[in-house]
């Protein structure tokens, strides 16, 4: 792999790892929150909706700084996690994953929520009259029908995580090999004389990953839709 310098290569690998981790770990929570927003009525629903969407509207730097305040070693949550379980986010790749997950969360929830709202509640009622509890209704009726939506949400979140820059660099800085993701690396190479060549190569990698993710999701979604409609 001498097409890319080792430093640039590690940024690509790190970005993939950060984005995959962020997507997979936040997915169950994303499905849960989307389901709550789509189907339940409870006090504070609008507050939850606002919180979920906040990272979409706030400047990424603000989100990153809030993460640092909360999840940094001195922060209330970060300090607790460090002492009780030895989990540290600040200036680690896990922090980059957390930042990516938070920034991608609104996109993920939105896609899944739309697909849940498209499921006819009448089917869920029918399942209930046939003896299925709420959990069973979700597992056997709702979940199989929203798989394409979940996939779309996951791909969107992955793509967003691959491109996350502002919150990441604010929260975990730009440490090569630890927190230097693809966008941070492109930014860093552009700051040094003669770095444009590597930066352009990274841009190409970035475009290729995004396109591949998009194509894969199209193919999978079409296959799932065919299976669901049963034709």
């Amino acid at each position: 792999m001498d097409w890319l310098t080792p430093e640039a290569w590690s940024a690509v690998v790190l970005s993939l790892r950060v984005s995959l981790t962020a997507t997979l770990v936040s997915l169950p929570l994303g499905v849960f929150v989307a389901h709550a927003l789509a189907r339940w009525s409870f006090p504070g629903k609008q507050v939850l909706n606002g919180l979920v969407h906040l990272p979409l509207i706030l400047p990424p730097v603000v989100t990153g700084y809030l993460l640092l305040l909360t999840f940094g070693r001195q922060g209330p949550v970060g300090g607790f996690l460090d002492q009780c379980c030895g989990i540290v986010f600040a200036f680690r790749w896990t922090g980059a994953a957390l930042a990516a997950a938070v920034m991608a969360f609104p996109l993920m929830v939105r896609a899944i929520r739309l697909s849940i709202e498209a499921v006819d509640p009448g089917l869920e009622q029918a399942a209930a009259t046939l003896g299925a509890s709420r959990l069973w209704v979700f597992a056997t009726v709702t979940l199989p029908m929203i798989l394409p939506g979940i996939l779309t949400g996951a791909i969107l979140a992955f793509a967003k995580a691959m491109g996350e820059f502002g919150a990441t660099i604010t929260f975990v800085s730009n440490i090569p090999g630890e927190t230097q993701t693809l966008p941070s690396a492109i930014y860093a190479f552009l700051q040094v004389p003669g770095g444009e060549g590597t930066a352009i190569k990274l841009v190409l990698v970035s475009v290729a990953v995004a396109m591949a993710a998009l194509l894969a999701s199209e193919v999978l979604a079409a296959r799932m839709a065919r299976r669901l409609s049963g034709t």
Binding site: D120, A126, A128, T129, G131, M145, S229
Partner: peptide, 29 residues
């Protein structure tokens, strides 16, 4: 709760589960 009532409900619009076969629909309840 509805799922504890053991009451069969035939709706106007059938409401079959589209992702299951006829056999699986029949065996659901």
């Amino acid at each position: 709760a509805p799922h504890r009532r053991r009451i069969g409900y035939v709706f106007q619009e059938a409401r079959l589960f589209p992702h299951l076969s006829v056999r699986q629909n029949l065996l659901y309840g």
